[in-house]
Amino acid sequence: MLIDWFTVGAQVVNFLILVWLMKRFLYQPVLSAIAAREQNISDELADAARTKAQAHQQQDAFEKKNQAFDEQRAALLSKAIDEANAERSRLLVEARKNAAQASSDQAKALIDETQRLHDDLVRLTQEQVYDISRRVLADLASVSLEQRACEVFIQRLRSLDDRAREALSTALKVASPQAPALLRSAFELPVAQQNAIQTAIDECFGQTIALEFQILPELVSGVALSVNGLKVAWSIADYLEAISTTLQARLSKTEPV
């Protein structure tokens, strides 16, 4: 017979033992290892997902910070530009002001220089005229310029018109030894001429006039009587005034614009 029942029973027992042994030594360890590895992979994937999410969060935060930084930088830049523009405007105004001041100072200096030059020219001209006149008079008439100036003054005094004479007479009446009338000359008058002038004045106004003689170099060559705001004078300065006016007109024509 092909079936041996003892062998059948033994094989059933063998098979059941083999099932138990294979479960114990094969299926459970292998399935546990697979499960552990799957768990590891799952953990790694979860960790990677968590890390990715964290990275996204950090990226978002970084982008927000970047945006805020850009906005702040733009605001600061705009503010700096505004401040620079304001400073530029201020500096321009200041520079214009300084330029205007410098221009004004230059113009003033030019005017002062012109005036000084003019004064020098006038003084030089006076001196030259005075010197020339003195020489001419000495050569031609043997008369000193000072003497001739006194004579011309006396002559002018005597040829005053009535209204001027009246006004001057009224003014001379208040003159006293305490407040004498002033007779100014550019040079020291000799006593003879002082007397001649005193005499001429006394005769012209019919009274003795207290005079005080003073030297005033600005008159260059001339004699001036001044009392109480009124004045009678002759000097080369009158002629020089005409020359000065002519020169002034000529200079104003040649000044740069």
Binding site: A10, Q11, N14, I17, L18, M22, F25, L26, S32, A33
Partner: peptide, 26 residues
């Protein structure tokens, strides 16, 4: 039959035990 069955069982169980003794999860 029984002898070869036991031999097979021994080889299968011993082989599985030897291999699964050093299983790694990496």
């Amino acid at each position: 039959t029984l002898v070869f069955t036991w031999a097979l069982m021994a080889v299968m169980v011993l082989g599985a035990a030897l291999i699964t003794r050093r299983l790694v999860t990496g």
